[in-house]
Design a protein around this nucleic acid. Structure first.
Length: 718
DNA sequence: ATAGCCAATGTG
DNA sequence: ACATTGGCTATG
């Protein structure tokens, strides 16, 4: 309802009196005129006999014209101008005096065909139907609208994320996928039996019910198969299923498991690796209802699966689940919207646990799918900690820059199999810290981080590039520097020297290894790029520089560190088979304790309780309003925020130095920006988003510039 | 966004 | 008196 003739829905809050009056007059005039029996269009255009009006979503991501526009359907396009079809229309400078070709051609989607229009003026004809393929069907449109509403964003922006770009060849080619096959038999519960509620969950899915669960997966290699079995169970009920994974590797694993279960032809893999055309071909097969099951990465969260029985997400704490494009929807939240709208099953699985998942359990919306403590102990490795005080005592360990315990664990484990070394950052150049107090070393000129340049040269600032001879710590006055974080390459080199008889392999963003054989080797990897170890898994894992991960000034630092550790530790063989994990972090810290006890759910529960106390998300819903101080103040004043909304701040954002690379969404160098947080209790999230969206749209329509950003669920609070 | 319109300002 | 420009409006 909000989209058609949007002006009438919500009068702008702070309209000057004159404008209000004008709007009123316009409104009255429009209401007074009954819809014409036949819409007028440009002279000479022959219109479609039936439903000559097409309601079009114009593909311009501008919030203030985020509504539908009516166009006339020329008779020649009648058959092709179907709802959901991509079209091109003239948009912009309108006709004057009958007809004028002004404005440019823009892309859009037909949303609806109608007999008449509410628009009193002359309708422009659709310029071209790009393809009759109904790519924006009613279900997908409703989902996109819900996501736009959830994130205070523009519908057209969301549609751009949801509908892949057109590849004409893929449309012409015969549709992929097997001819309609009977549903597969429900798979037996298998390793799901390790979870008391597992077999019942699968049975419910197979019988057509819609159970919702948060699944704390046991460590080990079974989760792709288990996830595939949940999808297969939904298929067995005759419904469709969708799983979203954080990266292409994980998606490929689930895809392979699913192929082993139900064969080829029933499901597609939607990832970026496939290439645009193959991807569009598969997407079309899903949209046409020829394939009922999708396994994919982030963008697959919108996949138009027919008759959804299950939506699933793996490792929802992985940052890649948030699309970085406007309005930055998170796959978990989109799938939650789908589960609620379509009343389908929901499965959120991970080795770790986010506070959002804990919240789903706390409210009772989802049920836990977790193993008993005994089962956890039986499959988890032994976790040991190495604190900062635990220095390298023997020379061999010192040569490897490793404390004794870590070094001896690695040496021992290398007799039995591969050893995983997780390093938090990539690259060769380490950042530096004060050797005495461990405070990060900062540039005396601009406070940027100091970086070692190698070759005995003095360290250099990572922001302004100045050399800093004669550095002294601002905290304690110390003058000696130590390496703070060592990247994967450097770590690999040093470990190679320490264990000369063992092959060293690295896996990182550039070259990600999929798997390593069950043979002694050192495998140095950045988080998320860890190869799977074949056979029983890694003999040991070394989690380096835990304190660097934990010292980030981020509300989620602990959760994120624990998530990365657990994802790596889950690749290590069980304690009963000698699997050991050594984490370099203070044992007293809560995330470290949660790792040692292998209790991610308990950690998430406690984090959630703490957030609830502080009024932080996800217990409350937050939005960030960012921009120049006056602009932020004006927007907040103009917005009709729900009565239970609470405005925190605004507070000034750090002024970026000229030398620092500009962050997207941040202030341009030298400008002072502020950020206010708006917080509402559960239940008022939709009203908050609607209020901010309306206020921002009104602002964009009026003033010349002064950008204000509105971000629902801001990531970097705290 | 972007074109068009109007009013206010600048120029011959 | 006319061109130029900036603000405001609407986009079917």
């Amino acid at each position: 309802m909000s989209s058609e003739n949007g002006r009438s829905d919500r009068p702008p809050a702070q309209d000057p009196p004159g404008g209000e009056q004008l709007a009123l007059i316009r409104e009255t005039v429009r209401r007074a005129k009954p819809p014409r029996a036949r819409p007028r269009t440009w002279r000479g255009a022959e219109l479609a006999e039936r439903d000559p009006v097409a309601r079009v979503l114009v593909d311009k991501g501008l919030l203030h014209l985020d509504r539908l526009f009516d166009y006339a359907v020329p008779a020649a396009m009648d058959a092709e101008a179907r709802p959901g079809a991509r079209v091109r229309v003239r948009f912009g400078a309108g006709e004057r005096g009958g007809r004028r070709e002004g404005g440019g051609l823009v892309n859009g989607f037909i949303v609806e065909r109608r007999a008449d229009s509410d628009f009193p003026g002359v309708l422009a004809p659709i310029a071209q139907v790009l393809s009759p393929e109904p790519v924006l069907g009613p279900g997908l449109l409703r989902l996109c609208r819900a996501v736009a509403d959830r994130y205070a964003g523009a519908l057209a922006d969301v549609v751009q994320l949801a509908v892949p770009p057109r590849m004409a060849r893929a449309e012409k080619a015969p549709a992929a996928g097997a001819p309609a096959a009977p549903p597969p038999r429900p798979p037996e519960a298998s390793s799901w039996a390790r979870y008391p509620a597992g077999p019942g969950y699968l049975r419910a899915l197979a019988e057509g019910e819609s159970p919702r669960a948060v699944w704390t997966a046991l460590p080990g290699p079974h989760w792709p198969d288990e996830l595939a079995r949940a999808l297969a169970a939904a298929l067995a009920s005759g419904r469709g299923a969708l799983a979203v994974l954080p990266d292409g590797r994980a998606a490929a694993r689930v895809d392979a498991a699913l192929t082993a279960l139900v064969g080829d032809g029933r499901h597609v893999l939607l990832t970026a690796d496939a290439g645009a055309e193959a991807r569009y071909r598969r997407w079309l097969a899903v949209n046409r209802g020829l394939v009922r099951c999708v396994v994919g990465t982030r963008a697959a969260m919108f996949a138009p699966v027919h008759d959804l029985g299950l939506v699933a997400i793996w490792d929802d704490g992985d940052p890649s689940h948030r699309d970085p494009r406007e309005p930055m929807p998170h796959a978990r939240e989109v799938l939650l919207l789908r589960a609620a709208r379509d009343r389908c099953g929901f499965l959120l699985g991970a080795h770790s646990g986010t506070v959002e998942a804990a919240q789903l359990l706390r409210t009772g919306w989802a049920r836990p799918l977790a193993a008993d403590r005994d089962a956890v102990r039986a499959s988890a490795p032994l976790v040991r900690t190495v604190g900062d005080g635990d220095e390298a005592r023997d020379p061999a360990a010192r040569a490897a820059r490793l404390p004794t315990l870590a070094w001896s664990t690695v040496r021992e484990a290398l007799r039995r199999g591969p050893v995983l070394v997780q390093v938090p950052r990539r690259g060769y150049v380490p950042r530096l810290a004060c050797d005495r107090c461990r405070e990060p070393a900062r540039c005396a000129h601009c406070s940027g981080p100091l970086e070692a340049t190698g070759g005995g040269a003095p360290p250099r600032c990572g922001w302004c590039g100045r050399d800093t001879p004669g550095w002294a710590c601002a905290e304690c006055g110390g003058t000696r520097l130590r390496g703070r974080v060592f990247g994967a390459r450097r770590t690999a080199e040093e470990l190679g020297r320490a264990f000369p008889s063992v092959p060293v392999r690295t896996s990182g963003r550039d070259h990600v290894l999929d798997a390593v054989p069950d043979r002694p080797a050192l495998v140095v990897s950045t988080p998320g790029a860890e190869p799977v170890a074949e056979g029983p898994g890694y003999a040991a894992a070394l989690l380096l520089d835990g304190w660097a991960l934990l010292s980030r000034p981020d509300l989620r630092a602990g959760e994120e560190a624990l998530r990365r550790w657990l994802d790596a530790a889950a690749l290590v063989r069980p304690h009963t088979e000698g699997g050991t994990v050594v984490v370099m972090a203070e044992p007293a810290l809560r995330p470290v304790q949660a790792l040692v006890r292998w209790d991610p759910a308990g950690y998430a529960r406690r984090e959630l309780a703490e957030r609830a106390e502080l009024g932080f998300p996800p217990v409350s819903r937050m939005a960030a309003v960012t921009g120049p101080p006056e602009a932020v103040a004006e927007l907040l004043a103009a917005a009709e925020l729900p009565s239970d909304a609470e405005v925190l701040g605004p507070v000034p954002l750090p002024v970026p130095d000229a030398g620092r690379p500009r962050r997207p969404g941040g202030p341009p160098p030298g400008e002072r920006w502020e950020r206010a947080l708006v917080r509402v209790p559960p239940g008022s999230g939709a009203a908050l988003a609607a209020a901010l969206r309306t206020a921002r749209a009104a602002r964009l329509a009026r003033r010349g510039s002064e950008p204000v950003r509105v971000r629902v669920d801001p990531e970097d609070i705290g």
